[in-house]
Design a protein around this nucleic acid. Structure first.
Length: 569
RNA sequence: UGGGACGUUGGCAAGCGGUUAAGCCACCGGGUUUUGAUCCCGGCAUUCGCAGGUUCGAAUCCUGCCGUCCCAGCCA
């Protein structure tokens, strides 16, 4: 992959790399750089996670360090191996490798427990028997200080005994928790005696039933980084408020102290990024699953046809800062087109067909026209595309009464059929209802290959497919998942729901698109440019041998559509 | 009314006391083109949330306002 990510495409070194370099220069961690990506295995990764993954792994690589993968599996109620497998698969797909450095916070449960006893012995943690509701009441508010729990000043001996009984399973769920003893009047609410352990008689996907007390994330996270020897703990800005707490734990324990650095999470226009909302889309049946091609999940993007390299390039261009931001989806789409333009073979597919009969072309004759596979890549070679008397063109490529700027087919007008001949529309055939069902055209035999001896110009070039040689295939055309640039920007007080911004037209299916026959050999995962339409991939789930199903990855830029839209409104 | 963070063009984002205030996307022209694609060329902040101050000189330093985001899980 090289070091293409080293410099943010936006300029010099981003603030995190500047920080790392400064630490290296001052010898803070003896020049060592170690990072980690710490997901909770309770859902699927999305492109926002990709930003963190890219940062963690790239920085480690750039500075000769390493990056590990650690699952923060501290909540058995919602975690599952299904997710750890999916997360690993997605990270590998994105192009990163953690080698043998695969860890779990649950691997540290025993160490964490010992750490907790140390704090109890130091008088820095206590067992609280207040109920969850009472703890909330005692916590105060942002503007009012909290109050000390009546159990706050127990002796270390009593706390130790109680804590050991918690672990032994002698106390019921909710009976009590272990809390850090910090400051109930602290202006930072995270410092008001945060919970370290809760009792939960739950089966953990890795530790099974060996534990009935589980550490909270706030207690486990920083120590896990410390145990692993992480030097730079990168996370999103929402954890900035927690850093003082993590620092407090590390100092109290007198253990290796990583530097936490926070950056702004990634947001994209026309989509949502929270796990909760994505789950709602899946469970509410709005999409077919976590891998629905409309989802911003890595699995969704993968199935949609996005490439890992395009995503990485996107992340590089977006940069890193602490500013709250929402990136234009067009930036992501640009990166994708940029890559696919270079790599995808061109092919002709008619989505919405209109029959064309070439009256002066011999019946029964078939010519094999030579077609360039990729004008951006000569090594992609050429292929043969059958041409005959009856063809299909795109219905939208004909207008009976065209406006001035329309330069496709119209009565009496001549256009070029890509790789084939010039044709002129002579007659429009309609059915009883008045719908246009066929165009009678003539062709110029001299124009074979797409040019004429007299050097005559045509304004339009259309894609087409020979009727007798068509391969029918389902084509799914995807659009933005939401109609609103920020779907979550709703007035809930007046009953508005973010999910009502779901784009009901985000999936349009052409059950039986007319494909050129070469597509019969397309394999799952193959990507093509459907000439004048966009980039498509062969769906990995719904395709069978010889019968591909296609997903539109991204449309080509369409100046004509933009023009039309402008004139309409 | 508490604490933490952030405010540079439509969206990102460089800039770190002396620059005509980079670059990318978007947008708007123009050229090339057998994809209205690609490609190429040009345009796009006399101004850095606002107001003062320091300085020969401020987007960069200081002060005060204003705006936005995060925090009151036994979630992460």
């Amino acid at each position: 992959m090289g070091d293409s990510n080293r410099e943010s495409a936006t300029g010099g070194l981003d603030f995190i790399r500047q920080w790392v370099e400064h630490d290296n220069e001052t010898g803070r961690f003896a020049g060592r750089v170690q990072t980690r990506f710490p997901p909770e295995p309770n859902g699927y990764l999305h492109i926002g996670h990709a930003k963190a993954i890219n940062l963690d792994f790239s920085i480690a690589r750039e500075y000769g360090g390493r990056c590990s993968l650690r699952f923060d599996d501290t909540n058995p109620d919602r975690e599952d191996v299904e997710y750890v497998d999916a997360i690993k698969d997605d990270i590998r797909w994105l192009g990163f490798d953690w080698g043998e450095h695969e860890y779990f916070a649950s691997d540290y449960f025993e160490t964490l427990y010992e750490f907790a006893e140390q704090l109890i012995k130091k008088g820095l943690a206590y067992v609280d028997e207040l109920s969850a509701d009472e703890i909330r009441e005692y916590r105060g508010t942002p503007t009012e200080p909290g109050r000390n729990s009546p159990y706050r000043d127990r002796s270390s001996e009593e706390n130790l005994d109680l804590f050991r009984r918690m672990r032994a399973g002698e106390l019921s769920e909710g009976r009590c928790v272990l809390r850090a003893k910090i400051d109930m009047a602290h202006p930072n609410i995270n410092m008001r005696d945060p919970t370290m352990y809760r009792i939960r008689f739950a089966h953990h996907h890795r530790t099974g039933d060996t534990w009935c007390i589980y550490p909270t994330y706030d207690w486990a996270h920083g120590q896990s980084d410390s145990i692993e020897g992480v030097t730079h703990s990168l996370c999103t800005v929402e954890f900035e408020n927690h850093r003082p707490l993590y620092d407090w734990f590390l100092d109290a324990l007198e253990v290796h102290h990583p530097q936490q650095i926070e950056f702004a999470p990634l947001n994209l226009t026309y989509t949502v990024m929270s796990k909760r909302k994505l789950r709602e889309l899946v469970e509410g049946g709005y999409v077919s699953g976590w891998d629905d091609p409309r989802m911003p999940t890595l699995r969704g993007l993968r199935r949609r046809g996005y490439t890992p390299s395009a995503i990485r390039e996107f992340l590089r261009r977006v940069g890193v800062s602490k500013t709250e931001s929402t990136i234009d989806l067009s930036m992501l789409e640009y990166c994708l087109r940029e890559e696919l333009n270079r790599s995808a073979n061109r092919v002709m597919v008619v989505l919405d067909p209109l029959k064309v009969v070439i009256e002066n072309y011999p019946e029964g004759e078939v010519e094999e026209m030579e077609a360039v596979n990729n004008p951006e890549d000569e090594s992609a070679g050429t292929r043969r595309v059958p041409f005959s008397r009856e063809l299909y063109i795109e219905r939208g490529d004909f207008m009976e009464d065209p406006p001035k700027k329309f330069f496709r087919l119209a009565p009496g007008r001549e256009v070029r059929l890509k790789h084939a001949y010039y044709i002129t529309c002579r007659e429009v055939v309609r059915d009883d209802t008045g719908e246009i069902v066929e165009l009678r055209c003539t062709y110029d035999p001299e124009s074979r290959g797409g040019g004429t001896p007299d050097g005559r110009k045509v304004k339009g070039t259309l894609h087409w497919v020979s009727a007798a040689h068509v391969l029918n295939a389902p084509v799914r055309v995807y659009d933005n998942m939401f109609t609103a640039i920020d779907p979550t920007d709703v007035d809930e007080e007046s009953g508005e729901r973010w999910i009502d911004n779901f784009n009901v037209n985000s999936l349009v299916i052409y059950e039986s698109a007319m494909c050129e026959p070469s597509l019969a050999s397309a394999e799952p995962g193959d990507r093509f440019q459907f000439l004048r339409h966009g980039y498509f991939c062969v769906d990995s789930l719904d395709s069978t041998a010889g019968a591909p199903a296609f997903n539109r990855t991204v449309a080509l830029k369409d100046t004509w559509a933009k023009l039309q839209k402008k004139e309409q409104g």
